[in-house]
Computed example of a mutant assay.
Amino acid sequence: MAGWSGEIGASGLARRLLGKPVFLYRLEDGRPAALLDRCPHRFAPLSRGSRDGDRVVCGYHGLTFAPDGQCVHNPFAQRIPAGSRIPTFAVAERDGIVWLWCGDAAEADPALIPDFGFIPDTPASRTVRGYTLMQANYEYGTDNLLDLSHIEFVHKGTFAGQGVIFAGQHSVRQDGDTLHSDWWMPGIAPPSVAQAHFPPDAKVDHWLDMRWNAPASMRLTVGVSPHGAGRDAGFEVPQAHILSPADAHTTHYFWSSTRYDNLGDPNVDAALLALFGEAFDQEDKPMIEAAYANVRDNLERGGDFWKEKPLSLGIDQGGTRARRLLESLIAKEALAGG
C-alpha cells in the first residue's frame, strides 16, 4: 500500500517506500502514477517541482518528465541528455487504496491485491481512515496484529477486553498464501465494542478474525452476537490494518474502521479517530518501537529475528506462521529471479 486515495491530491504525495523516494500523483484523467522522486541531474525531489499536464517539471533546473519516466524537455538545449530516464512504478487504485508494485511492471498482477471492499463509503456504511509512522520493521507490526492477546495489557485505556481473551480459543489456519489468526470467545459479558448494544448482564459470543496476506495486509473482523444465536444475529466491524516498509527500520501503518450506524453524525467520526489514535499512537506504537529498539543493533550487525531466540507462548503462532510463510515466498521470488 502506497497510501489512501484521498492522500494523493492535486499536489501529489511524496513518500519513502522500500527505501526509495517515491512521488505519487494523478494524471489529468484521474489515474494515479508513480515515479522515483529524484531528478537525475542533481537529485532534487521531483515532488518539489510543478506540473505541466501529465508531465512533472523539476523545480531545480526545469527538466521535464513524462509519466513513463522519459525526459521530454531540457530548457537549456534541444538535446535530451543521455541517462535522463527515471524509474517508474506500476500502481493500481482499488477500494480507496493506491497500491504500488516496485518490481518489473510487466509482472504486476492486480488480481493479487487483497480485497478491502468494505472501505469505500456507501449509503449504508461509513469508514474512518488513519495513518501513523512507526520506527520499527514492518514484521514487528505484523507480530502485534496477529497476536491480539496483547489488547488485555497494551490497550487498557482503549480496547481492553476485561479479560475476555482468557476465556477465548485461538486458532491459526492457512488457505493458500492467506493466513487466518482468529479468536472465538463464547458466552462472555459484552466487551467494550458491544456495550452500547447489549445490557451489562447479557451473555454474548465475540470473535476477532484476522486475515493476513503477504507482505503485511490485514483485515480484522470484530464481531458480537447474542450467545448461541449465531453470527448472523449479531454485528461486525471490519477494519483494515496494512503495513508498508518505508525502509528496513521504519513502517507506514495504515488503518481503517467501518461502521453501519450513526452515519450522519460527524461526532462519531471524531470520537473514533480519537479512540484509534490513542490506541495506535499512544499504546501500540510506543511498545512496538521499544521492543524493536531492543534488537535493532543486533539486526544491523547481521542478526535476524530467530537468532534472538524469541519465546513462544502459543498465542503468538499467527505472527510466527506469517514470518515463516513470508520467508518462503521471498525465497521463491529470489529463486525465480535468479
Score class of each variant (00 low, 15 high):
residue 1 M to Q: 05
residue 11 S to C: 05
residue 14 A to Y: 00
residue 16 R to Y: 00
residue 17 L to E: 01
residue 19 G to L: 08
residue 19 G to K: 04
residue 24 L to A: 02
residue 31 R to G: 03
residue 32 P to Y: 09
residue 33 A to Q: 11
residue 33 A to T: 00
residue 37 D to P: 00
residue 41 H to Q: 03
residue 41 H to T: 04
residue 44 A to F: 08
residue 44 A to Q: 03
residue 44 A to K: 01
residue 47 S to D: 02
residue 48 R to S: 13
residue 50 S to I: 02
residue 52 D to I: 01
residue 54 D to S: 04
residue 56 V to H: 06
residue 56 V to D: 07
residue 58 C to Y: 06
residue 62 G to Y: 07
residue 64 T to A: 10
residue 64 T to H: 07
residue 66 A to V: 06
residue 67 P to R: 11
residue 67 P to N: 08
residue 78 Q to T: 07
residue 80 I to N: 02
residue 85 R to C: 02
residue 88 T to R: 11
residue 88 T to A: 09
residue 89 F to H: 11
residue 104 D to C: 10
residue 104 D to V: 04
residue 104 D to F: 09
residue 106 A to G: 10
residue 107 E to D: 15
residue 117 G to C: 07
residue 122 T to L: 12
residue 123 P to K: 12
residue 124 A to G: 07
residue 124 A to E: 13
residue 130 G to S: 03
residue 130 G to I: 03
residue 131 Y to W: 13
residue 131 Y to C: 09
residue 134 M to Q: 09
residue 141 G to A: 12
residue 141 G to D: 02
residue 146 L to F: 01
residue 146 L to Y: 05
residue 150 H to A: 11
residue 152 E to G: 01
residue 154 V to H: 00
residue 156 K to R: 14
residue 157 G to S: 14
residue 157 G to E: 13
residue 158 T to S: 14
residue 162 Q to M: 14
residue 166 F to R: 05
residue 166 F to H: 06
residue 168 G to S: 15
residue 170 H to M: 09
residue 171 S to I: 00
residue 176 G to E: 06
residue 176 G to A: 03
residue 184 W to T: 10
residue 191 P to M: 01
residue 192 S to Y: 14
residue 209 D to L: 13
residue 214 A to D: 03
residue 217 S to I: 03
residue 220 L to H: 11
residue 224 V to Q: 00
residue 224 V to G: 03
residue 228 G to N: 06
residue 237 V to H: 10
residue 238 P to H: 04
residue 257 S to T: 13
residue 258 T to H: 01
residue 270 A to M: 09
residue 270 A to K: 14
residue 273 L to C: 09
residue 275 L to V: 07
residue 277 G to L: 05
residue 277 G to C: 09
residue 284 D to S: 00
residue 289 E to P: 08
residue 291 A to S: 15
residue 297 D to N: 15
residue 313 L to Q: 10
residue 319 G to T: 03
residue 324 R to D: 14
residue 328 S to T: 09
residue 332 K to G: 00
residue 337 G to E: 12
